[in-house]
Simulated scan of single mutants.
Amino acid sequence: MLELKIELAPQRKEKPPADKLGFGKIFTDHMFVMDYSVEQGWHNAKIKPYEPLELDPSVMVFHYGQAIFEGMKAFRTQDNRVVLFRPEKYISRMTNSARKLCIPEFDEAFVVKAIKTLIDTERDWVYGEEGTALYIRPFIIATDPYLGVRPSHTYKFMVILSPVGAYYAEGFNPVKIFITDEFTRAAKNGLGDVKTPANYAASLYAGEKAKQMGFTQVLWLDPVEKKYIEEVGTMNVFFRIGDEVVTPVLHGSILPGVTRDSVIQVLRNWGIPVVERTISVDELFEAHAAGNLKESFGTGTAAVISPVGLLRHGDREAVINEGKTGELASRLFDSITGMQYGKSEDLFGWIADVR
């Protein structure tokens, strides 16, 4: 059984005010670290002061990209508890990512416990202001000092924490999305359904081109026919067409988002029909022309719900719900964040106390 050691920082950092947090720019006093070797398995688990890493220039993560990560959040509730949202679901997804990247699997229950202990150590960094959270970034990197294409024999598992405000500068306002058929991100049975840095590196060029044209993100199409909707750069995507909500089916190139799964469960609990299927870009613009495309929104851990106000594909443009946040997107945002901040009942057993 792994033992978790704790080494506290001799001096704590000064915490900025809540309105100066931004996203992913500030880090707490401590981090979790655990090592792997073939001989010892996962070992040397500890919480220690946040500090730079010292790595050999030849470690395999730099040259062959063998790495995975997750993104989770902790919240301070109205009654001053510190809680996590669906931690087991996120860590289970990380296990699936590890398997596909040939990274040794780990004890999920121990990792969840270690994350809770780390957050308990850093609970002063969990702000209570509305919209703030403590972002949790678990990740594993390959650390063999070796140049050659094979899975590493050693790894480092780390968890760092970052207090955050809103993910988008726009806040909870509709974003503009550019649908690209010039670039593709992932193919079926590739790496599109795992959280690995390669997925995000593959999205950078198209994302920057979209930003230069005034769009927030890119919406990807399938890489073969370039006609079916996949996902947005950092979000799964949903469309309210007529009386039902439609989202692309998971088929090996789309990340199985935890927020995506949460939204589907909430909608079905409300009695709103949700369909997971293939959706063509032509179907979307036809639905818009017929007045049936009522809403669109993205889902993800960072933004939770991100309303989409405009879609552009080539010379076609669809302004959705007059460019305003839709009723369903608002209701979903209030429902999920209400559970996270303890403002509404946790009907699904998703909220876990840190202690």
Rank of each mutant, 00 (worst) to 15 (best):
E3P: 10
E3M: 14
L4H: 11
K5W: 09
I6Q: 12
Q11V: 15
Q11L: 14
R12C: 13
A18F: 15
D19E: 14
I26V: 15
D29K: 03
H30N: 13
D35P: 07
W42Q: 04
N44D: 15
Y50P: 11
P52T: 05
L55V: 12
D56I: 08
H63A: 06
A67C: 07
I68Q: 05
G71S: 07
R76K: 15
D79N: 14
R81P: 02
R86Q: 05
R86M: 01
P87K: 02
E88Q: 14
Y90W: 10
R93K: 05
T95R: 14
K100T: 03
I103K: 05
P104Q: 05
P104Y: 07
D107C: 01
F110N: 03
V112Y: 03
D120V: 09
V126G: 13
E129K: 12
A133N: 12
R137L: 09
R137N: 07
I140P: 06
T143I: 12
P151Q: 11
P151E: 07
P151W: 09
S152P: 07
T154K: 14
K156F: 02
L161Y: 08
P163L: 10
A169Q: 13
K176D: 15
I179D: 01
D181V: 03
T196F: 11
T196S: 14
Y200W: 04
A202I: 01
A202L: 12
A210G: 02
K211S: 07
G214V: 02
F215Q: 01
L219T: 00
L219K: 00
D222F: 01
P223S: 14
E225M: 13
Y228P: 05
E231I: 04
T234N: 09
M235R: 03
N236E: 02
V237R: 01
V237H: 02
F238G: 00
R240E: 11
R240I: 06
D243M: 05
L250W: 02
L250D: 12
H251Y: 12
R260D: 04
V263L: 12
I264W: 08
Q265E: 15
V266E: 08
W270E: 07
G271C: 14
R277L: 07
S280P: 10
S280E: 10
D282F: 12
H288V: 04
H288G: 00
A289V: 05
G291Y: 00
G291D: 05
K294S: 10
F297T: 01
G300V: 00
I305K: 00
L311E: 02
R312L: 10
H313W: 15
H313P: 03
G314A: 07
G314S: 06
D315W: 09
R316N: 07
R316S: 10
N321G: 10
G326V: 09
I336Q: 00
G338Y: 06
Y341S: 09
Y341Q: 04
E345H: 13
A352T: 15
